[in-house]
Design a protein around this nucleic acid. Structure first.
Lengths: 217, 217
DNA sequence: GATTGTGAACGGATTCACAGCA
DNA sequence: TGCTGTGAATCCGTTCACAATC
């Protein structure tokens, strides 16, 4: 079993390493050193080595890391070896943009980097607007939010992206939690309350912009 | 002068305190304790007190913090007492959604919470598409990216939101840096290189989703 | 010679705990 | 009494530095 006390900061750096190693793979490097990974990600080589050894001894002393091997290890650690089905709550402007963001990223990636298909898929969307429910938006079927639990099962949704207006965010998240989902990416500019078995990552643009204002000019 | 070594983690929590104190203000509380602020934000009361004392002694022993006074102090610290003009690079799906995100948030807030107008404004957008340049999108004028430096001056832009495709992100950021802007909110899924006088906050959805996948299910 | 893996040292952020004040 | 402000203690993540190994 994994998950024996891996610090959150380490988990959050793993996708950075994955991105780096896929870039080296694309450029047909066979091995990569912790120094090179550090340069790419903006971290120290010691940091890279220490992070990776949380999960195993992937390198060879005097040589470095085998690119293809490390890439596959990282994908397995992050559970990205099979499709990850994602639900989207709220098909407003932002929700629609997120659908395209993924679709575009995927198709661009498939075309240019066939070796590293992204396994993240928005597989179902949820809204309350009768004009949207029952339609298919850019290939993504749209259901009423009341069907959430049912569709989570049906589509095997493991992550929910919350793009509903702030005033409904907590309510929707409560339903998402009830449906059994354990990972939420939240865009609503509110502090959400969830059981601590559920992980929420927030992309709170208001917070980001307000803290940037401190440094601006 | 401020900015004498305030840790970044502290600055990033300030908007959270602002949000909390505005909520207490809205509910017409006159004073608020560090405990209440901690409950709202999910932090300890000691953390709240220590953070605030980086900027001054805002509280009264035995009483707590005066809500209106603390609110104004936080707005001044974050430089949110006058309009903060923001530029947007890339008016694709995501860029358009961001324009609406702000506009919607602002108008909703104005209607419901006239006491706390948000001072963040997307004042100009930039693209290279001839079909977009010269138009006005949802009240925001759209300029060619070549006019960046000129319009940064003209509109007093202090923050740039980067919503261009990944492959142009570094190039655009180089221009943004050259224009003199010191704060960037980046949505492109790439690691950017900037001088360390420039601050980049990233909203990298790919990274967020990939790290969530680790915890999912 | 090069580079990993890691114990030890370091540093910075969080929490504790209490003196001081309303 | 209640709650702030803060030095001291603690915790935790990062960096150092080097033995082990290819």
């Amino acid at each position: 079993m994994r998950k024996e006390k891996i610090p959150d900061v380490v988990v959050r750096r793993l996708p950075l390493y994955l991105r780096a190693v896929e870039d080296f793979d694309r450029r047909e490097h066979v091995v990569v050193s912790s120094q090179e990974l550090g340069d790419f990600t903006g971290l120290t080589s010691a940091q890279v080595r220490k992070d990776l050894t949380f999960f195993g001894e992937f390198g060879k002393q005097g040589i470095g890391y085998d690119v293809k091997f490390l890439r596959m290890q990282l994908r397995e650690i992050l559970r990205l070896t099979t499709d990850v089905h994602i639900g989207l709550a709220g098909l407003g402007n932002l929700g629609k943009a997120l659908v395209h963001y993924r679709v575009d990223a995927n198709s661009r990636q498939r075309a240019r980097f066939p070796v590293s298909p992204d396994r993240l898929r928005i597989s179902a969307a949820f809204d309350v607007d009768p004009a949207k429910v029952g339609t298919v938006y850019a290939g993504v079927p749209v259901f009423h939010i009341d069907q959430l639990t049912e569709k989570v099962q049906e589509y095997g949704l493991r992550i929910m992206v919350n793009a509903v207006p702030a005033e409904y965010a907590q309510e929707v998240v409560d339903r998402v939690v009830a449906s059994g989902i354990k990972s939420i990416l939240n865009f609503a500019p509110v502090t959400l309350t969830v059981p601590d078995t559920v992980r929420v990552h927030s992309a709170d643009l208001t917070l980001e912009l307000q803290s940037l204002a401190y440094y601006a000019e």
